[in-house]
Design a protein around this nucleic acid. Structure first.
Lengths: 231, 231
DNA sequence: ACCTGAACACCGTTCAAGT
DNA sequence: ACCTGAACACCGTTCAAGT
């Protein structure tokens, strides 16, 4: 009530800064880091921003777009340098994709939305640029390199979406086990190929599988001509 | 009210058959075919089955499990024979995976859940068995074949999840366009590799890309040894 | 054992009305 | 132009109580 007190509330908290897309997305990232993507809802964000849900629709088209914006923000954490793994394009490419996967692993639910709602933000473009550059050093034809980038990102994203859920959600763990158990329980007479390949089918560490998957794609990409290519 | 009328109501409609997991899943498939997966909710299904949502939890652990069951039912539609494409394992494998992708294309939202909640039903096992059998005819080492099946299914599923959304949801179309536009709008000075690879980066028909993706994987799988393999 | 009413704790999105 | 209260039409899941 005294005169000298008046500015305090403006300083105590950010004091309801004007709404803006940037502010909404920043808040969304905070909420996601603290409580996961499924708490990043319009209503929850509105509460966080001290307004009603309807207000957010001035800046964000819908929940999916909001999640896409959060994803692009997270992509800023990917290490594009491929630091400390030597000069070879293959090693560097492996490192960049490993960093991308690691970031998605920490935010499982985001990997899912990455598969469906393709990102197109600044950080995504930088990632594509970097992968393109590294892969083109393989000397493969330009078309193969261009299409290959898509496959590499898709593979990394899908792997993250699959395995990341496992790591976090206890129910998903059971899910993998259910598949493994089902494969084990199979009748040799009706499913001979499964029986034959059994130990390998569910074996291998995640790292081994990821590295192998990377090599499979790189080898395939650099040796498989695009249909109708000049040669 | 007359005596002779009494059985009619039992015949007019299925007359509320006893609840069972099978009956719930069948109904879920129907609802999905008619209105899409996001109408397959516990509450909606309960209404359809003329009971309260709580009743369903006796047979189904949660919504995710319900969706997984629907997916396995749909997998029954995949053509495993690879009919009419010759005897080569490669052509047959391509046909089976194309059929798998086609089924998922018709039910976009299901492809998403397939990536996260691994199926383990009867139809899934038959699909794995068939792919395993075909791929092993390549003569590649057993470990590569075993791990390769996973990659082939993952690739097909991810492709379906990505592209299928495009086809149905008008918003997703914009999404692709947004990515395409972003790639076009890029500055040559800051993103030289994107500029260089530009026409190819977003070009190519879905079919060409899918076929190329298949060849990339098969070539990679058959030529890339699993880490620590005997030889 | 199986089933359920009712409740708890949420959602996304729109729209008319205000500033 | 920007913002919002209030409403519409939903969700998943649990639990105590019934048969």
């Amino acid at each position: 009530m005294t005169a000298g007190r008046e500015p305090i509330s403006r300083r105590e908290r950010p004091a309801k800064p004007a709404l803006s897309r940037q502010w909404i997305v920043d808040t969304a990232v905070q909420v996601m880091r603290a409580e996961g993507l499924d708490k990043v809802t319009m209503r929850r964000l509105a509460k966080e921003l001290d307004t009603g849900p309807a207000s957010l629709y001035v800046y964000v088209a819908n929940t999916a777009e909001l999640h896409a914006a959060v994803l692009d923000a997270l992509l800023g954490e990917v290490d594009l340098t491929g630091a400390g793994v030597g000069d070879g394009w293959r090693e560097q490419l492996r490192a960049v994709l490993a960093s991308y996967t690691a970031v998605l692993f920490e935010h499982p639910q985001l990997a899912r939305s990455a598969l469906v709602a393709r990102p197109s933000g600044e950080n995504y473009l930088l990632l594509v640029e970097r992968i393109l550059d590294l892969l083109s050093r393989s000397g493969a034809p330009r078309e193969q390199v261009a299409w290959g980038v898509d496959k590499l990102l898709q593979d990394a994203t899908a792997t993250a979406a699959e395995h990341a859920t496992q790591a976090q959600d206890p129910r998903a763990e059971d899910d993998w086990n259910a598949t493994a158990r089902a494969l084990h329980a199979v009748d040799e007479a009706t499913h001979p190929a499964i029986t034959t390949h059994m130990p390998s089918l569910i074996g291998g560490s995640i790292d081994d599988r990821m590295n192998w998957g990377f090599d499979v794609l790189v080898n395939g990409i650099t040796h498989t001509p695009v249909p109708g290519a000049k040669g």
